[in-house]
Design a protein around this nucleic acid. Structure first.
Lengths: 232, 232
DNA sequence: TCGGATGCTTGATCTAAGTCAACAACACCC
DNA sequence: GGGTGTTGTTGACTTAGATCAAGCATCCGA
């Protein structure tokens, strides 16, 4: 990796508080790679060879079983994936593909593990990150087991609207079929669910969403901190 | 905590490779407490005040939303819970209750965090544990999103049978309604699902299960390492 | 030993969600 | 501009699973 590229990624959250020389020794042997849209970046079941960090673009994390497939998460800049597999030196549990053209930082897994062994600050970083990731998945599991499809959609809309700064009009950040898979439903069901939100004054026109009565939507969604609050 | 009690729990996996003085300083201010069956040990939404480790008995980890409730996991001796909440100093995402009479080791959360800051080996321990826990939940999420109720039951039977040493005749380790909740279905559905397994030569008599044709069951279940293998 | 919980099963019914198929709305590309 | 493929919508139908209600079995404590 070139020196100017190293500077671009040094500020990433996973390196926070980590000794500069350790960061550098990792980055020097890393790759900052560009991918076109629709490329499979990692495949479920393969041994974990790189820690991946999204620098630019969107990445879909998904998993297949028999003839089914489901989206586990959609990641943006700054987020990294398959950390657990790298730390434990196991196989990937999920696959990932680029949803848009993307730039990904690839850090060799053994370098990560070596730094993990040597630098306490880095170990703490990873532990905190893993703890956060763990809580995210737990929330998602509860979301799946405890809510209906319509409730999941309503809560996702509220959470996303919050995330992008509270604007009541926004575009869906990815295709509806991806959203459907992310929410754990068939595309047809998502379509109908959007229809079912019309009485709650949710306007859908293509990818444009307008929430014209947050209170009504919130009353339907009934968000709860232990599932929906990203900060808790 | 008394000296003889400390000796009983020093060997727990989370203390592996951690400096003795750090372990001792944590344990000295910890509690080894007995609980009768059916006690709520932690409540979802409360701030994390203790790291809990099951020493004896069974603990059900569950979560509620509106009028629904679901079991996230059932833990036995040696397993600890709500580690992520303790590390990040957040609220519990799940509740827990004793399923049997139980002995639980309670380590004050701030002591854990302090040791986490000071001892790199402990931080690595926690990171590995968190990574393992993370992968477990990811598998469970996939299990939920990608499989039908019957498939989940069939795979659970195979996994449990494996876990207890390969015996084809065994007792369910907890009540059927807990298993139903764990598998994400209504108790009635579990009952019928057991019925549906009869053609696959699975015999059910009360809590006693007998698998009389593993191959048939395995052909139905189609286990896959990235969901069902606890070692991967 | 007799109630009375509680847990489990079974049947009937209802509902959410998946499936299949047709079609509309686009975007892309020659 | 007119295919051509992809995404999204809509309708009809099927199915998995939830719910409700009744009936048993088992455990337990008075």
């Amino acid at each position: 990796m070139r020196a100017d590229e190293i500077e671009q990624v040094r500020g990433l959250r996973i390196f926070e508080g980590v000794e500069k020389r350790h960061v550098d020794s990792m980055l020097r042997i890393s790759f900052l790679q560009r991918f076109p849209q629709g490329v499979e970046l990692v495949r479920e079941g393969d041994p974990a060879d790189f820690l991946h960090v999204v620098v630019e673009g969107k990445v879909e994390v998904f998993s297949g079983y028999r003839d089914r497939e489901t989206t586990v998460a959609v990641l943006g800049p700054g987020q990294c994936f398959i950390m657990a597999a790298v730390v434990l030196d196991r196989v990937y549990l999920k696959s990932a593909r680029s949803l848009t053209a993307a730039r990904i930082l690839l850090i060799p897994a053994d370098a990560v593990r070596q730094c993990f062994e040597q630098d306490g600050a880095f170990a703490r970083c990873l532990a905190s990150d893993l703890a956060g990731a763990y809580r995210m998945v737990v929330k998602e599991l509860k979301n799946q087991k405890l809510r209906s499809g319509l409730e999941r959609l309503a809560n996702w809309l509220l959470a996303h609207q919050e995330e992008i700064g509270g604007n009541m009009r926004f575009e869906l950040p990815f295709e509806k079929k991806v959203l459907a898979s992310r929410l754990g439903m068939a595309p047809e069901v998502l379509s109908r669910s959007f229809g079912a939100l019309a009485p709650y004054k949710v306007n859908v026109k293509g990818a444009m969403i307008e929430i014209r009565d947050v209170e009504a939507l919130r009353k339907l969604a009934r968000p709860t901190p232990t599932i929906d609050d990203p900060k808790s």
